[in-house]
Design a protein around this nucleic acid. Structure first.
Lengths: 144, 144
DNA sequence: CACAATTGGTCACGATTGTAACTGTCATTT
DNA sequence: AAATGACAGTTACAATCGTGACCAATTGTG
């Protein structure tokens, strides 16, 4: 009977690796700030673009709108972001980071960058092939 | 203020890609068999090794024991696997695929193989670098 | 041998998630 | 401008998941 080695199967390997990387990364910012991954994504997206609606955050960070909604509320309760009604469209709210939120962002971003750089350094000459093939895969699977 | 482009951040990209690949793969076997990913992993692991305890399945497929326990029960109710008490250790149960389970396995494995081959073919000369760097990353993150 | 510690597996619980329904607002059609 | 459909965001609900408690069986220690 034809068999398949699960441990060599691409979807399985990608999932396992992605989980491990995320867990590892979370252990870097988690202890200091107790952020979930959705919260981190909202923080990162708002830090990157200053002003966004929840809809735009979801589109840019690949998150479902309910996931965004909940992460936004949590961060709002933590006073890391604030809402402001939009003038053009009163259905949506413009979100921005508070001073506390910006402080957290400034604290985490260097750690995130160092985390990534460490991986790429460890990969050495294989870093560039990784980034290239990642783009190819993202294109193949229409991610983004 | 130093910024980070989330869409270029490695952990984020890996997670998004892994989800997309898994979803795409699931759309191949899902419609025919209505399997969840945990159930697929149990099926694949049992198909690969014939006889295993739940513990061993979890270790080989990187799943939490409760996740294995639930997937095993579902597959048992579907009559795709059966349990048998172990002689050596009466705490554990030896799991094997039934004829139905083997049929499903034989049906899905070629599809899984074709799915993977298709990706690697699309990648062309970048397929081999991908597999190489995957191994490196698995090693770096102590996956397996 | 007794008994404490460990282990395989299940279950109860709380947390997280996606789906679908819902509210209020905007756009389009007439 | 009234009605209809689309849309941003929240909420309710159900499904899925991990943590920890738990049971029965095994292993280790004195």
């Amino acid at each position: 009977m034809a068999k398949l080695q699960l441990e060599r199967f691409l979807p399985y390997r990608l999932n396992r690796l992605a989980s491990a990387v995320s867990q590892d990364f979370r252990s870097i910012y988690g202890p200091h700030h107790d952020l979930t991954i959705p919260e981190w994504r909202v923080l990162a997206t708002l830090g990157q673009f200053e002003e966004l609606s929840a809809k735009e955050i979801g589109r840019h960070s690949s998150m479902h709108k309910t996931k965004v909604s909940r992460a936004v509320r949590t961060l709002e309760e933590r006073r890391w972001l604030k809402r402001r009604g939009s003038e053009q469209d009163r259905r949506e709210e413009i979100l921005t980071l508070t001073a506390d939120g910006q402080r957290a962002y400034r604290d985490i971003v260097p750690k995130a960058a160092a985390f990534e750089r460490r991986i790429l350094d460890d990969l050495g000459t294989q870093a560039e092939p990784l980034l290239t093939v990642l783009e190819r895969l993202e294109h193949i699977f229409r991610v983004r």
